[in-house]
Design a protein around this nucleic acid. Sequence first.
DNA 1: ACCAGTTGACC
DNA 2: ATTTTGT
DNA 3: ACAAAATGGTCAACTGGT
Length: 530
Amino acid sequence: MLLDRLAETWTAVAATRSRNAKRDLLAATLADAGPDDLEIAVSYLGGALRQRRTGLGWRGLAELPEPAATPILTLLEVDAAFELMAGLSGPGSSTRRTAVAAELFGQATAREQAFLRGLVLGDLRQGAMDALVQEGLAKAYAVDPAVLRRAAMLLSSTTEAARLLVREGRDALAAVGPTVGTGVQPMLAASAPDPSSALAKVGSPAYADVKLDGIRVQVHRLGDEVRIFSRSLDDITERLPEVVEAVRELPARELVLDGEVLALRQDGRPEAFQLIAAQAATQAAVTQVAAADQSAQLGTQVPESLALRAFFFDLLYLDGRSLLEAPLRDRIAELERQLPAELRVERALVDTADELAAFFDAAVARGFEGVVVKAPDAGYAAGRRQASWVKVKPRHTFDLLVTGVEWGYGRRQGWLSNIHLAARDERTGEPVMLGKTFKGMTDELLRWQTEHFSSIATERTDHVVTVEPTTVVEIACDGLQVSTRYPGGVALRFARVLRYRPDKTAAEADTLADVKRLLGPPVEAPDETS
DNA sequence: ACCAGTTGACC
DNA sequence: ATTTTGT
DNA sequence: ACAAAATGGTCAACTGGT
């Protein structure tokens, strides 16, 4: 199949808002793809290359060669080119990658170049992604969409489901079960603003799990072989040797566990997410030892490595038996039989909103992120964000100044969208930037912002309109994080707009000191000798 | 030996 | 990650 | 009820250049 066929489909899919029409367009193209093309077509129409990383990004695509006049590229050729780029590493690889990319894009027509660009950047904007491609594929092959979706979730991707479907047929799809060693799409949680609405969504009684702010992991064990997958099903086994060891010591031979990895301090409170994530992103212990040796010789400091531990909250597979369809209460019972308490997330079974609120308050007081409220009867809905799991986190609010706004893209084109947020410096009164947000804005608010901020603009560039720092906006966030980018040394985490405060003047906005109170009482500064 | 820019992954 | 919009 | 888009911040790895 020619790449042009997918580029054409992409244009057509983007042109309609009807999901059914999108599905039919996708189905027509997928029905025409041969067995060798199907996986690539499924992946590309879903907006993704088959390679997880190619080393190409927006910078690498900044200058493209003249487009070709006629389409000649085949899917196999394109996939091979990206495969080549993905495999390049070491000195000279960057130059080589640029050359390969230039050759590929030089053979592409203008429309194909735009399509490829969207694939590389994950920026297709056609109003259809993985889920709609599944529907299209199901229609093209006349299989039950629910069967296809389930297979995709259990096989880790729609591409894998497509491969199985085209090679082994419909029956093989229906027979798919969870397999030790193949990542299952993790179940996600909906969210609620407070404990009582969470309980209202889930129903009672409900389980309340302490929500840990770390790295989501799915751990597979088959005998001595242990594999750890991240939320996106990346294999991160090499980065978490302590977790491998802990799981190897369990009595069960075959396991698929769902949990969170983090580090606790001496006092039992969790380390900051930033430290945990940094540790988890660091390659194998061998490298760390080497780095420590090296820095010892140089007399420099290497940050002390954190002891990462896994805390599990679900069990999906045990010794030949899938537990995906089993109700949570049964999965929990089995989890408690198989794992010692030190490896489990703390949880309670609650009946009332008051009990839940007390559990939530206690968890937050101990430094944890919040709670996840779960329906005892629900099965494990792989890959879905259902009301059977609902997370709740404390919400903090500040009144901040808007110092600038950025022009939006895509459906926000032509509107001033992303706003720059600042607190007042308590001494000088000058705004200190703490981050940006585009969240919480309705279309109506976007219209208002565009008009309002245009009227108080002091400076304009291509992307950013600087404004007089007089507008006060009420912002919600999950907390603060240490920042080297922003001058106050902190940035807002998950900031979103609640409402504008036309009733407040700039002088009434919160100060940097007000915001920093969220960090808790200031820590004794260690003696800094250099 | 170190720095800066880019990419990719986590939340 | 969160939120809004549209089917 | 679900899917998609729009865009946030941080960190480590990697590469090329000084």
